[in-house]
């Protein structure tokens, strides 16, 4: 059996080149000035408190992602709960339906909202035809939040649902048996037991929301740029790789830090958010 260990070798080599080395390169570039010299300038430029242009963008990314995540949680938890209480027969199919949109191409999902929200889009044409004033949400932060919520809601529903369906029915019966009414049972039993699902739901929603540049670009327009847009800009437009890498490092540390905190909660459960299907 030990001979099979060798089977991991191709992956080890591949991962060394295409997973580890690139991360090392990001760190290297982030400490490199225009002339290839070692510098901290890329970081001091980002964390410039007298001119917080970039920090504001970072703050905006976190702020919009946080609001989107909270909305997803508020909408998603009840949905997951309802799905988890369905009879076995229909539960599989229905939960599949609620998760299916997350497999639809992410750009198309975002694009769909463009066609709906645009000034001459479907909703506004409809409103105009009814003689109502138009709804100018396109290219606002509201549109970005809407785009986030729409894109990531299934990522919130799924892990919570996964945890809720696994709660042993006898635990609920035990609570009822011990005199808990349904409100008490929910607050004292179901809610605490579902926390691991909520945690992975939050991470699966917050992480992509904070790093997106597509949603902000397509729905938010230029004025609501996020950190993802900034990074994309350094590589696709200005060519300032050092600065782009530095921001990626910041983003990476932010995400890994958040993951660490999340992981601590998730470890207690066995990572119920990992299963996407």
């Amino acid at each position: 059996m030990k001979k099979f260990r060798i089977a991991a070798l191709p992956f080890a080599v591949y991962a060394g080149i295409f997973i580890v080395a690139p991360i090392v390169l990001i760190f290297m570039y982030s400490f490199q000035g225009a002339g290839g010299d070692f510098t901290l300038e890329n970081f001091t430029r980002f964390f410039n408190f007298s001119d917080p242009t970039y920090l504001k963008v970072l703050w905006r990314s976190i702020y919009l992602a946080a609001i989107s995540t909270v909305i997803c949680l508020l909408l998603g938890y009840p949905m997951a709960y309802i799905l988890s209480r369905l009879p076995n027969r229909v539960r599989g199919i229905l939960s599949f339906l609620f998760v299916l949109p997350m497999w639809m191409n992410f750009l198309l999902r975002t694009y769909a909202w463009m066609t709906l929200l645009e000034r001459t889009g479907i909703i506004n044409t409809f409103l105009t035809n009814l003689g109502l004033p138009t709804w100018d949400i396109m290219y606002t932060q509201g549109a970005v939040i809407l785009g986030n919520v729409y894109n990531f809601l299934p990522f919130m529903i799924l892990p919570i649902y996964n945890v809720l369906v696994k709660i042993d029915k006898s635990v609920l019966e035990a609570s009822a048996d011990l005199g808990g009414d349904s409100g008490v049972t929910f607050r004292k039993v179901i809610l605490p037991l579902s926390i691991p699902g909520v945690i992975s739901g939050i991470s699966m929603t917050f992480m992509p929301a904070v790093t997106t540049f597509v949603i902000s670009k397509l729905l938010g327009g230029g004025q609501n740029a996020l950190i993802g847009d900034l990074i994309e800009n350094q590589f696709k437009v200005t060519g300032d790789w050092g600065f782009g890498s530095a921001m990626s490092v910041v983003l990476m540390i932010l995400i890994l830090g958040a993951m660490q905190i999340m992981q601590r909660y998730e470890d207690e459960n066995d990572g119920s958010g990992g299963v996407l299907l």
Partner: peptide, 16 residues
């Protein structure tokens, strides 16, 4: 690659 943001994975590969 699963944990990291796609954008970071993308630019890290670009740099490579």
């Amino acid at each position: 690659p699963m944990i990291n943001a796609d954008i970071v994975t993308g630019i890290s590969l670009l740099l490579l």
